[in-house]
Design a protein around this nucleic acid. Sequence first.
DNA 1: ACAAAAAGTTAGTCATACCTAAAATACATC
DNA 2: GATGTATTTTAGGTATGACTAACTTTTTGT
Lengths: 254, 254
Amino acid sequence: MTTAETLTASLEDYLEAIFHIIAEKRAARPKDIARRLKVSNPSVTGALRLLAKKKLVNYAPYDLVTLTGKGEEAARDVIRRHEVLRDFFVKVLAVEQDVADKAACKMEHSIPGVILERFIQFAEFVEVCPRGGSKWIAGFGYHCDYDSAMENCEKCIAQALEEVKKKKRQGGKKKMPVTKLKDIPPGGKCKVNRVAAGKASSRIIEMGVVPGALIEVEKIAPLGDPIDIKVKGYHLSLRKEEADGIDVTPLNAR
Amino acid sequence: MTTAETLTASLEDYLEAIFHIIAEKRAARPKDIARRLKVSNPSVTGALRLLAKKKLVNYAPYDLVTLTGKGEEAARDVIRRHEVLRDFFVKVLAVEQDVADKAACKMEHSIPGVILERFIQFAEFVEVCPRGGSKWIAGFGYHCDYDSAMENCEKCIAQALEEVKKKKRQGGKKKMPVTKLKDIPPGGKCKVNRVAAGKASSRIIEMGVVPGALIEVEKIAPLGDPIDIKVKGYHLSLRKEEADGIDVTPLNAR
DNA sequence: ACAAAAAGTTAGTCATACCTAAAATACATC
DNA sequence: GATGTATTTTAGGTATGACTAACTTTTTGT
Ligand SMILES: [Mn+2]
Ligand SMILES: [Mn+2]
Ligand SMILES: [Mn+2]
Ligand SMILES: [Mn+2]
């Protein structure tokens, strides 16, 4: 089970920083951590000793720092909270990137799991629901920028009406388009239709790749082998054989 | 100007507690504060000395505690953040009341002003936008409760289509209904059309009661004199003469 | 190889924010 | 008005989390 040892906000930030530095270089030097978190060197030494005591980092004086398994798990969890909040602020609330990022890194330490999941679900709902969608969210941008908020309401309604009608016509004529996950381009989003029961299916199902789930494709390696996706805020790397068993409906063209 | 002395999360919570206790009784006793915040008595004494040093509370040993003007302003600010977050969690994200409240009281200390305003604006946008609305938000409830999310999508779209059409017909035939603020019942919401330029208009305009603003009526006193409203997260108490100058469009019937 | 520079650690300080135990004060009641 | 109880404060302690100054170790350049 996931040990729920409570970490302080400060220690979570150290873990987060160490993870990111390791992702860039191979291991983290205390100096890098200090620079990134804008604290003094002795502060880093202190934090590393606390983290080592909790078995979250491998640390010996004058040595490079790496994360233990437990530490990486904890770091990923912090980063997930950070990214979910940041993305909600940017994509739903139309907040500026760097403001959103700073706020996310402050709030990530106090958001309960239930509410984090709701942030994800809401963003997905907006994406998926015919009454929501990116065009509707764009309307919120207007609502923020111009004080005379819903001036162009007429236009917005007409458009929504059109789209709903079109969707209905399409829905009546032909089936929803079904593709393989590998055919979704990087940056594209899709909804899972079916996960073929294969050897590796249990792992991906556990991570949230189930029928109905929203997937964002992040990166596809040259030969299509590791496909990086994001599901419910989790970054996942799928092997070709895993991805091949996933049938999806593309969502890009709304 | 509002002195932006940075308060710690802990001190903000003390201010918040003191404000609420004073609202219930006349003044706050350290014991009340300790009970409410679930800390020991000496912790309260310590906090009160810090707050007194910052001129936020009137405090003398063994005496009752009251807020200074500055202290009340700071307390109201914390409470506004708390309520805005809580209401967003409950009304938009469909989070349970007490979970939302606890989370709000943790996150209120780290949310930047810009994002707080966006939370308010988004909730208002959902309320006001013809593509949003309470029925649409209810759809998010389904999306959360049932895994087979948008099963009843067809119905939802049809309904939305109907409403948009009806709105359009109404819009073509007759003018938007205009009422006085005093005619909105407690719990009702409305949009400000016009604020008559009177003696007291500058105060309420400063607080955000401007054309286009969304108002929620909270309480109307027996003779209609103090009308308690909420605008952009601020609780306001309007005198009859102030309320009389405010023309609104009711929003209840969507 | 060795000195200088850079990086890292230790030691010691300070502020917040809790706590318990003990002393002081206020109040309530007989 | 004495006395007991509840409240409040003081005293003293712990833990986090930051800092500076001084020391040690490692790295780097010649
Ligand atoms: Mn972060
Ligand atoms: Mn952070
Ligand atoms: Mn609060
Ligand atoms: Mn709080």
